[in-house]
Design a protein around this nucleic acid. Structure first.
Lengths: 105, 105
DNA sequence: ACTTACCGTTAGTAATGACTTACCAAGTGG
DNA sequence: CCACTTGGTAAGTCATTACTAACGGTAAGT
């Protein structure tokens, strides 16, 4: 489930990562985020859409405003994806060292 | 150390991720990778440079060829970065649920 | 020495994407 | 009902970047 891979692409952009890092601490409304960032509010809105499509954040209506917060499931999926490579890279590296015995730069 | 954050940006590109996924299984030469991918050899070379600058792969000279393989340290740094958010997101989410008691879509 | 194979780099182009301005919809309070 | 707030969307611009073609450089084979 949540075979959402391109959460990586979503976190590649610096502005988007800044938004995500703030949301990691506590929920935020769109305008609140825009005030703390050097970009306009529509830009924040577009970034939040990307993060939402990537499954990294979820949003809720609060009267006039929309509250965004991190989705632990999305972060967990990314973590699982990276863990897969972590393990594969470790075994591949170990095999290469055993067979080749060479040290790389 | 290895405060290498933009390994994320390096893995954002689909072609680069395809290269990285192959290297996760075993070491490859540049020409080998180019044969399996729908892009030219110089493109693969450029992507490998980005991955190398991001600390995700390491390369070694083997006579005429260059062998690339995954750098476990780089993957580990990415994993550590994500783990930080994983924990923060979990606690933030827990706090939000406790205080608000609201379920999000 | 010549040819072939393998690879990195450069230059130039096409495509992707991040941003702002402007506009529109919905909720809130006088 | 009207003014204000809040936020998503559209259109257009500008920078970034992924790609190919062409070149040069080094190693291996004949």
């Amino acid at each position: 489930m949540t075979y959402q891979v391109d959460g990586i692409a979503a976190l590649a952009d610096p502005t988007r990562r800044a938004i995500f890092e703030r949301l990691a601490d506590r929920p935020f409304a769109v305008g609140e985020l825009a005030k703390e960032l050097p970009v306009s509010r529509p830009a924040v809105s577009q970034h939040l859409k990307v993060l939402k499509d990537a499954g990294l954040v979820i949003d809720r209506a609060d009267g006039n405003r929309r509250i965004y917060q991190v989705d632990p499931d999305g972060v967990g999926a990314l973590r699982a994806y990276l863990d897969k490579f972590w393990n594969r890279a470790l075994t591949a590296f170990k095999d290469a060292v055993e067979k080749g015995g060479e040290t790389l730069s």
